[in-house]
Design a binder for these strands. Sequence first.
DNA 1: CTGGATCCATAAGGATACTG
DNA 2: CAGTATCCTTATGGATCCAG
Lengths: 141, 141
Amino acid sequence: MDTAPVDTAPAPWSVPPGACPSRTVVEVLANKWVLYVLGELGALGDGSAPRRFNELQRSIPGITQKMLTQTLRTLERDGLVERTVYPTVPPRVEYAPTPLGREAGQLAAVIGHWARSHVHQITTAREKFDEKAKQAVAPLT
Amino acid sequence: MDTAPVDTAPAPWSVPPGACPSRTVVEVLANKWVLYVLGELGALGDGSAPRRFNELQRSIPGITQKMLTQTLRTLERDGLVERTVYPTVPPRVEYAPTPLGREAGQLAAVIGHWARSHVHQITTAREKFDEKAKQAVAPLT
DNA sequence: CTGGATCCATAAGGATACTG
DNA sequence: CAGTATCCTTATGGATCCAG
């Protein structure tokens, strides 16, 4: 796969009114389930074992079957994960990140790490903000 | 600000059913408008000038006034941007990233960069995927 | 086991009009 | 200029049932 040259000609960006292509890519990552799934799939190195559907669902607390399916589909469509179906009975389907998906997974991991290391700071900021807001609406007693 | 020790005790995560705090932080970043705004605010270095409301709106194509307001509010609440009001007439309001916001802005920038450098790859993957899907529903002619 | 298909509630978000 | 408020449409997403 991916035998085509990495770079094609920088053709004139005939961007149809308001449709910047790179934005569509940003907006793929701007999705919590995508981040969690990519993080899960891409967390480990190159040799990480492909994951199965239910396995993924269990490892991502709160995700529904629908959202997991939907997320995996778009990721497959975008070439970020590869879906392999083993026509056994019962069916066995495995999901593995593509090289590109592993890159995205690293971005997800970075975000996750940043999030974890600043939770407290942000939580505190929120509390402070909310408290001030409360005072503003109830200045007298 | 931030005179408290960066790290508090690793208290037992008494996470109320399904509410992982760090997730709420991830989910702040998992939002396209947040990414665009942070990218815009945090794009430049420490000495970047604060941005005004309309200025921001113009520099982020497609964002509505409502979304910009809403986004800036949550970012302010989370301690990622600082809002300064100059009680002049007409009103002048400036938005600047906090140090934390600048960090987040860098994450946004990284995502943006990754997106731009892989647009083509992903666009191609989408076309290929969609074409295959089309064949599947119309296999004979 | 791995989903597809539905139904339905809620949230996100755009358009518009109005205000200090 | 910098919003707030409202309406209204669409998208998101959860729950449930069904099927290969």
